[in-house]
Design a binder for these strands. Sequence first.
DNA 1: ATAGTCACCTGAGCGC
DNA 2: TGCGCTCAGGTGACTA
Length: 288
Amino acid sequence: MPELPEVETTRRGLAALLTDRFIVGWTIRNPNLRWPVQLPAQLRGGRICGVRRRAKYLIVEVIGASHAAAVGERGALIMHLGMSGNLRVLPVETAPGKHDHLDIVLSGALLLRLNDPRRFGSVHWQADPVEEHWLLRKLGPEPLSTEFSGAYLKARARRRRVAVKNFIMDGQIVAGVGNIYASEALFLAGIRPTTRAGRVTLLGYERLVAAIRQVLEQAIALGGTTLRDFVDQDGNPGYFKQSLNVYGRDGLPCPRCATPLKGVRTGQRATVFCPKCQSAQSFSGRRC
DNA sequence: ATAGTCACCTGAGCGC
DNA sequence: TGCGCTCAGGTGACTA
């Protein structure tokens, strides 16, 4: 699935192609995504004025232009790619394939096509203010924003007994940190994923915040991580997989100290760490 | 409020 | 080649 860097990669590709196009219509071949897909009539004729990202949601901003009543009315398509989704901009005549659930037909003889085998993705319409949508309302700060800091995490972690890995994957704590990058960031910060969130020190959280930023920024620069099926809007894979230190490397040597990496499960998710480099001590942050 | 589990769905990979 | 099992990049809803 797409995590934040993959969504950001998709966003960058889409923004250039979608901005200033008009929505001519749409075809919903299978509305049964995570929530039933329903698009309002007022969307027709709207002009796309930008593509933003919030957590792993893509926000396609639309300004009404068709009917007198809708002119100037703003809103957005809020799209999530789930575990297996991808969005492409294609010539309007491109025949749909398996799992092509939704096309948004655009001016310029193009369409925005959503493909999602597992159908864990979603598409919603929300009139302004878009941030008031129930899926976005409770999200924590963006990990690449200045609001996200070691002090913030330390404060939120007070009395929390969950594993720190689950803690940073909680979208209400910080938005958009998924399984790959949580694992990678904890490795870079030298913190054991199973450490209880309340026991990580301020120094540990400062290192963790720096590591999260580093790993996300580097992954975005490389076009994201392709494990099996992620492609950006041009159909290209991401190249961050070569940079993974621990994710998917259970039993293989630690890239730093060669100790075999250990795999466990925390919160139903596969978790891999180096038993030597990632300290089990509460004041984590140490490296070997 | 918090922590843990379940659910949604398809496809790939593995052992037999 | 086929069958059955496990696992997968997410995340809201439930349960204690």
